[in-house]
Simulated assay, not measured.
Amino acid sequence: MSLDVNPYGPPASGSRVPWERVHPAARAGVEEFLGAPVAEAVTQSGGFSPAAAVRVRAANGRRAFVKAVGPQPNSEAVAIYRAEARNAAGLPPSAPAPRLLTSFEAAGWVVLVFEDVAGRHPATPWRRDELDLVLAAVRRMSAELTPAPIPAPTVGDGFAESFTGWRRLLGEDTTGLDPWALRHLDELAGLESGWAEVAAGDTLLHADLRADNILLADGRVYVVDWPWACVGAAWFDLVCMLPSVGMQGGPPPDELLPDPDPAVTMVLAAVAGYLVRHGRLPAPPGLPTLRPFQRAQGVVALGWLRRRTGWS
C-alpha cells in the first residue's frame, strides 16, 4: 500500500477561503461587530464547503469563529449558509452547539459569527473513549431537542430528493456497481421507498453528523454546522453517522446500533442508496473530496445493510 493512502477514508476537507480573500465588505462587517480590526485570523481545516472558516482575534482581544461564503464557486453554498444562520439562531442553550453571536449579508456574501470554541475534532481513527463521549452526547442532544424547539422541515421533506438512490439507479448505468447491490437492486429500491414514513418523529435532528462536524473541548462535545436541521425520529442521526464512524476506524455500525427494528433497516437502505449513488457522480464545484468521502462511507453502509437484511 502506498504510504500516502489513508486507510481510514479520504479527508473531510474542501477548498477553504483564507481570510484575506473574504470580500472586504464582509470582513468590515465582522470587525465592526467585534469593535476592532482583526489582528489574527487562522483558517480551520475540515468540512467540505468552499468557504472561509476562520478563528479570529480582534485587536481589542475579542475572539470569534467566522464562517463566510460568497456566490462562487458554488452558488448553492449561499442558501446553505442562510439556512444555517436561521437554525443556529434558534437553537436553545441546552443544545450542544456553539452560540451564534450574529449573522449578516454583505456584497453577496453570507457571514456567520460564532463564539470561539477552543476545541478539536475527534481523533481518526476514532478512539473508543472519544467515541463513547460523542455517542452519549448525541443521545442527550436527541432527548434535549424533543420536541423540536424550532420550526424545521420534516426529515421526509428535507431528504425527499436525496434518499432516492436505489430507485434512481434502476434507470441509470450501473456499470461498476457492487455485485450484491446490483443483484438486489429491485429489492433495495422497494426497501428504500418506505423510509420517510418510518423516520417520522418530533426530534430536532442535525442530519449531518460526522467527526468533522464535532468539536471536543474540556470534556464537552459541541456539534457544529446545522444547515440541514430537520424533524424526525430520534435515532435518525445515529443511523446516518455510523457509516462515517466505521469508515474512519471506529467499530462496525452493528456493534454500536444492534437494534433489529425494521424501521432502522429501511432508513439505512435510504442512507446507503444515497451514499452509493452520489459517490458515483461528478464532484460538485468547489468540493473536490466530497465524492470519495461518500464512496468510502457507502462501502460501510452497504456492508451494514447486507448484514441487516441477510440477503445472500
Rank of each mutant, 00 (worst) to 15 (best):
L216M: 05
R139T: 15
R307V: 10
R16V: 11
V111M: 02
G246R: 12
A199E: 05
P251Y: 05
E20Q: 07
E40A: 15
I150F: 07
L100Y: 04
E105F: 00
A52D: 06
L170K: 11
L302A: 01
W126H: 14
P24R: 06
D178Q: 05
Y222S: 10
E20P: 12
G232R: 06
Q72S: 14
G46H: 05
A88D: 15
L112A: 03
A25H: 10
L238R: 08
G298V: 02
A270E: 15
L145C: 06
A200V: 07
R16S: 12
G303H: 08
P125H: 01
L112N: 00
A39E: 14
G176Y: 00
D212G: 01
R183G: 09
W126C: 13
R127K: 13
L91Y: 04
D173N: 12
R120N: 14
W228C: 09
P151C: 04
D261F: 03
A107K: 03
D225P: 04
I80E: 10
L100R: 02
A189T: 07
L290N: 04
P288S: 02
G158V: 03
L257H: 11
D254T: 08
N87W: 06
A97Y: 03
W180E: 08
L242G: 06
N60H: 08
L209T: 01
W311K: 01
N213I: 00
A272N: 00
P98Q: 09
R306Y: 00
T265A: 05
R55K: 13
V267C: 02
Y8I: 12
Y81V: 05
C240G: 13
S15K: 10
L170Q: 05
A152F: 10
G250W: 02
V22F: 02
L305Q: 14
A152E: 07
V117H: 08
E172R: 09
G35R: 01
A148F: 12
L170H: 10
V198P: 11
G219D: 15
S312R: 06
C230Q: 04
